[in-house]
Every structure is written in C-alpha cells, then in structure tokens.
Design a protein around this nucleic acid. Structure first.
Length: 113
DNA sequence: AGACTGACTCCAA
DNA sequence: GTTGGAGCCAGTC
C-alpha cells in the first residue's frame, strides 16, 4: 500500500498527496481513507496547513468532496485555483470543478481508457 | 485532564 | 440541485 517507513498519519497523508498525478485532484476524505483514517478528513487539512515546504508538495490538488476549493477563507484560495487552472483543471462559475472528470482514481478508469 | 478548533463529510429537509 | 445540522479525529490551549 504505502511505504512501511511512514508510521504517522501525517507522513502517510503527505505521501499520498505527493502521489496525486498532475491534472487530477483528490478529496480530503479520499486522502484520509488512503492514509487509513476514513473519518479524519479534517486532519488532512490540518496537516496540509502545517507542512514545512508547500513548494515540494502538490497540496493544491486536494479539495473538498463537492469539488470546491476549501481554502478561500484561509487566503490561499485564489493561489490554489490559479495553480490548478495552470494544470488544466477547469472551474464552474460556481467555483467548482467536475470531480467526475478530474478526481484521481488510482483503482479503475475503464471509461477514461 | 477537559474543552475548543478546524483547508471535512454524510444524511435529511 | 442546494442548505443546514450532527458527527469525527487529532492537535492545541
């Protein structure tokens, strides 16, 4: 599943975020589940808020379950959106992206192939 | 130790 | 389809 050297929830979360491919996005809940705690999506946000080097991590590809940017109140929302758009992610007038298209699905993608 | 907070989600109305 | 309320987990005060 994941590197055994990663013991803490924090490290596992970061490791998974790092694996989100360019042009795709993942939800907090998705990352939380992959990291082993499906009921702790808020921790994902908390962790991402405290990462040492944001430049080395594609944190911008993590959004909420509705496909919206969850960081507007934190002030980096516009930056995040700009980064995602530069990766090819498109947003609706409502500020939401189509998860059906952009959600990172590491298991199956029969329709996309 | 107990209470508060948050870059969330799910389910019901 | 949208909006509101309750639940949840880990870190911090």
């Amino acid at each position: 599943m994941i590197d055994p050297s990663l013991n803490s929830y924090r490290d596992r979360v970061l490791a998974w975020v790092e694996r989100i491919p360019l042009g795709k996005v993942a939800t907090y809940g998705q990352i939380a589940a992959l990291a082993g705690k499906p009921r702790a999506p808020r921790q994902v946000g908390q962790i991402l808020a405290g990462i040492p080097d944001p430049d080395a991590l594609p944190w911008q590809r993590v959004i909420n379950a509705k496909g919206e940017i969850s960081t507007y109140r934190r002030g980096v929302g516009e930056l995040q959106r700009a980064m995602l758009e530069s990766e090819g992610i498109c947003f609706d007038p409502q500020g939401r992206c189509d998860l059906r298209t952009y959600l990172w699905q590491r298991e199956t993608d029969p329709l996309e192939a």
